[in-house]
């Protein structure tokens, strides 16, 4: 069965006919060509697919596209202001919080969610809040630094 879904993605209304079983991540990647949201596992653990739905971080690989009907969806592509990086993105760059870049969109989306809930997190709080995001490159040290620095910058600005 297919169904028409409509939602707002990065501020723009979108609408499409999709299979009932289409995952939200596939809708974003294949239909909308927003390929910044990645798929790194099939057991809902790696967090590379993290996006925001109605303001909260979710794993888009574990949600049906139709479940986002009427929702406000934010992906990594909507975070920066054009070429100008969001303070959190800039903090990842300044603190070398990424290497291969594959987990990075999910990390940034999680980071924004962490800071939303806790504007000035401690190192331990950041480490615990990253429980749902795997990175194989960085050993997390610089990701944690990035998020703390990004939080400070966001609070200041």
């Amino acid at each position: 069965m297919s169904v028409n879904v409509s939602m707002t993605v990065n501020g723009k209304p979108v609408s499409a006919e999709v299979e009932d079983e289409m995952l939200l991540v596939n809708f974003l990647r294949d239909h909308l060509r927003l390929t910044g949201t990645h798929v790194g596992c099939d057991t809902s653990q790696c967090g590379a697919c993290t996006i925001h739905v109605d303001g909260v971080a979710v794993k888009s690989c574990t949600m049906l596209a139709v479940q986002a009907e009427g929702s406000n969806v934010a992906t990594i592509e909507g975070v920066s202001d054009g070429e100008t990086l969001h303070p959190m993105q800039q903090a990842f760059k300044d603190n070398h919080g990424l290497q291969c870049g594959f987990c990075t969109p999910g990390m940034v989306m999680s980071a924004l969610d962490i800071v939303k809930n806790n504007p000035s997190p401690t190192e331990q709080e950041v480490r615990e809040a990253l429980e749902g995001n795997l990175c194989r490159c960085t050993g997390y040290t610089n990701i944690v630094r990035s998020i703390i620095a990004g939080a400070k910058e966001m609070e200041a600005s």
């Binding site: 794993k59 574990t62 749902g132």
Partner: peptide, 9 residues
């Protein structure tokens, strides 16, 4: 339970 994204759903 799980992780923050899992807890949100």
């Amino acid at each position: 339970i799980g992780d923050p994204m899992v807890r949100n759903r």
